[in-house]
Design a protein around this nucleic acid. Sequence first.
RNA 1: GGCCCCAUGGUCUAGCGGUUAGGACAUCGCCCUUUCAAGGCGGUAACACGGGUUCGAAUCCCGUUGGGGCUACCA
Length: 486
Amino acid sequence: MEDTPGQRRPCYHGFMRPPRLRFAPSPTGYLHVGGARTALFNWALARRLGGVFVLRIEDTDRQRSEQAYVDAILDAMRWLGLDWDEGPLVGGPHGPYFQMERLERYQVAAERLLQTGAAYRCTCPAREDAETTAPVACPCVGLALPPEAGGALRFRTPDEGQVTFGDMIHGDMSFPCADIEDFVLLKADGVPTYNFAAVVDDASMDITHVVRGDDHLSNTPKQVLVYRALGLGVPAFAHIPMILGPDRKRLSKRHGAVSIQQFREDGYLPEALTNYLARLGWAHGDMELFDLAELVAVFDLEGVGKAPAVFDYDKLSWVQASWLKRLAPETLTQRVLPLMRDAGLPVDGDAPERLDALIQTLVPRSVTLPDLVSQARFYFDVPLAWDEASVAKVLVPGVEPVLQALRDRLSGLHDWGQAALEEAFRGLAQDLGLKAGAVIQPARVALTGRTASPGMFELAALMGKELVLRRLEEALTRVPGVALPG
RNA sequence: GGCCCCAUGGUCUAGCGGUUAGGACAUCGCCCUUUCAAGGCGGUAACACGGGUUCGAAUCCCGUUGGGGCUACCA
C-alpha cells in the first residue's frame, strides 16, 4: 500500500496480521495524563480493529523503577476501564509483561548482532555532554573487544544512506544515517536500553501498530535500523502529539494535577477523564461527549492531529460536570455513597430513592464528587455547617417573625409534597405582604446554613417535615436579639 | 549547537482548492428564576508572517518566526 501525496491513508486496513497493539509504560512514576492518553488511543484502536491490547512494563531503568509504581499504573488502568488482554501468568491470568523478566531475549538478539557485525563492544565512559557535541566516532568500533573487556554493546549505524519508515500520522519519514550515532543496545550490566528492548519486544509480541508519543519520533529511525539488522518486520508507527501545560511546556506537576491517581482522589469520574483525554489531539466531527464504547465505535488514527495540545483544566471540569448529569442517578449514587460515609453522613438508613433524589438536586451545582458530598450535609440529621457570612447577611433582626410564622404554617401542613410546600411558602409571603424571596431566603439559611442551595421546595420536601421544623426552631436562636426559647 | 516535528479565536478542534471559516470550553450580555447553579438565546474572538503555484488558497510548495521533541550505559 503506497501513500497518495497529500492524503492520509488508514494503513491498518491493509494489514494481513491480526492487529496487536500495546501500551508500554515505565514504572518510574504514576500514570500521568499523557501516558493515559497513549494507553487510551492504543486501547481504542485495538478494540476498534478487533485486535489484541498488550500491556508491557518497561522496567529496565533499575534506578528509578518501583513496584509501587507498577501497582499504581495497573490500578489506574483498571480504574479508567482500559483492560488488557494478555501476559504471562505473573500476578494473575492477565498480568502484564515485564522486561526485566525477559533479559535472555535481549541478550540472544544482541549476540546475533554482535556476530553479524551490526554491533560492537564499547568500553568508553558514558557521555554526559551529548547536547552540545556532535556524534563522534567511537574508538571501539574497529577493536572487536572480547567479552572479558566488559562495557556496553553499541549498534553500528551505517555511515551512509537513509532510514525510512511510514508513520500513520506524519506520513513517510526519512532520516540520514549519518545523523544517527552509534547508540547503546545493552548497558554494561547486560540490561537493554529502551531503543533495543522495545524493538525486540514489539517484534516478539507481534505488535502490528506502535502508537506512542511523538517524543519518540526521533528514536524511531534507530529502532528501524535494529529491526532491519535483526531481519525483523517493521510495524506501522503512529506518533501522537504530546500534551503541554498552559505555558506550552511539557505538562508536569507544577501545572497542577497530572496523575490519574490524583484526579481520582480529587473526585473526577473515569468517564470524564477518558472522554476529555480522547478529545485532546483527536476529534470526530463535533462530537464532544462519549463513553468508552462510543469512542471505540468511531475511533481512528485519521482523527488524530499533529500539533501538541494544551491541557485545559476548565474544559475537563465541563466534561466532568457533563458526566455527572450523563450518569444514571443510581450509578452516580453508588459512586458518591462511600465518600458520604467517610464524611460521617448517616446514609445507610436512607431509602435509595431518597439518596438518588437528593444527590440529583446537587448535580447542577457540582463538578467533582467531593462537591456533591460537601453540599449534601444539610439533607441529613447532623449539625449544620453554618456559613457565618450567610447568617450575618440573612438572619438579621426583623426576620424572626417571618420564620416563626413559617414554622407555624408548616407545622400545620399535612401534604409535604413540593406543590403543597410551594403553596404554603407563597401563601405566607402574600399574607405577610412580602415578596416570596423575603420568606424563602431566611428559610434557606435556616434549613441549609447558607444562601446558596437547591430550590427551596424540592429541598424542603426531601428534607422532611420533622427536620425542617427543627431547623427553623434552631435558626430562631441565631437571630440577633431573640432570647432562647424556654 | 546538530537533527526532527508542529502551526485555524485565550484553549481543544472541524476544514482536506471555491464556506457568511463550523462546533466545544472559557469570556461577555439577555432570558428563566426563591438563592446559587444548571438550562435556553445571543455577542466578542482565529487561519503566525513573507513569498510562490493557481482563475481561485486556511487548505499545495518554499522561506521566516514561534513552539515542541530528540541528541544518556533514562524511557
